[in-house]
Design a protein around this nucleic acid. Structure first.
Lengths: 148, 148
DNA sequence: CTTGACCTTCCAATGATTGGAAGCTTTACC
DNA sequence: GGTAAAGCTTCCAATCATTGGAAGGTCAAG
């Protein structure tokens, strides 16, 4: 099985297979006499594992960890679970960031006429000078902004 | 006002200010005799605009569009609103992707003992061979996966 | 035996940002 | 005035995952 077939069978592009080999995520493939890479069904299985992990948003580094655990028959499932849940936490953090952005933008767009007049609260907000820190009583919510 | 002060005042790093100048997002700053960049309050205002747009997840290209609209006193607010809402749509798309990943991972982790035993549904799922296409009746939902 | 599809390596680009090196300028202090 | 530190300049490189292309070798079908 050459790299093109392995690519089709696994859903990982040939380019990425070579890249994963280069950075050491997967072992160097066997070669034919003429230098073509050769893949076994087991190799394809590994590539498919990578494909699925990638689709779940794992980084190359995390995929390396998961691959090692997968191939370690004496692993503790707690280790796998920890990697997965930590990744979930990262994803949720990102979701919250994005939700904050979307909320702010929807709010601003909701107050924008969206017609041929130039007045636009969206631009006004983007251009606004953030208040130094507080006026008399500090506002309970410091306005529409996202955290650090 | 030199680049460091402009950076502090706007919240955009000196590195990024030079970069934005280089790629043409902002006009080249004036210079002192000795070559130092000089920024006016108006320039800082522009940088702050950029900073806020960036915090809302706009790309450099989108920031260019927004900046042009901002500086065009004859703009139509509909144009601004369209850019904002299109960005909201992109953000929401990304949120849905991430939510799909998180849902899958939470589901898998929920079935993982997470102890010292090696059995782990997370790894099992990552290693699973996707069914060729269907068995008898095609499944209504083709399993846990994300689109192309 | 030619053609086209496939493989090889190597280099470059993406997007936004950060880091560092080498060298000049300004500021502060003695 | 001298010196040291901090800050500025440009240029180049790295990040992360992926794609694109060029130049050249190999395999299959016709």
């Amino acid at each position: 099985m050459n790299i093109g077939e392995a690519s089709t069978a696994s859903g990982v592009s040939s380019k990425m297979i070579r890249y994963y080999e280069q950075i050491g995520l997967i072992r160097a493939a066997a070669r034919t006499e003429s230098g073509y890479r050769v893949y076994s069904p087991t190799d394809v299985e590994t590539l498919r594992f990578i494909r699925r992990a990638r689709d779940l948003g794992f980084s190359v580094e995390e995929m390396g960890t998961l691959l090692a655990l997968w191939q370690d028959k004496g692993r503790e499932s707690a280790d796998v679970k920890r990697v997965a849940l930590q990744h979930v936490a990262e994803i949720e953090k990102r979701i919250h960031e994005l939700e904050g952005m979307a909320r702010t933008l929807r709010h601003l767009a909701g107050h924008c006429h969206g017609d041929d007049r130039p007045d636009c609260p969206i631009l006004d907000d983007l251009a606004a000078v953030p208040e130094p820190s507080a006026k008399k009583r500090p506002a309970r919510r410091p306005a529409l902004q996202n955290g650090p």
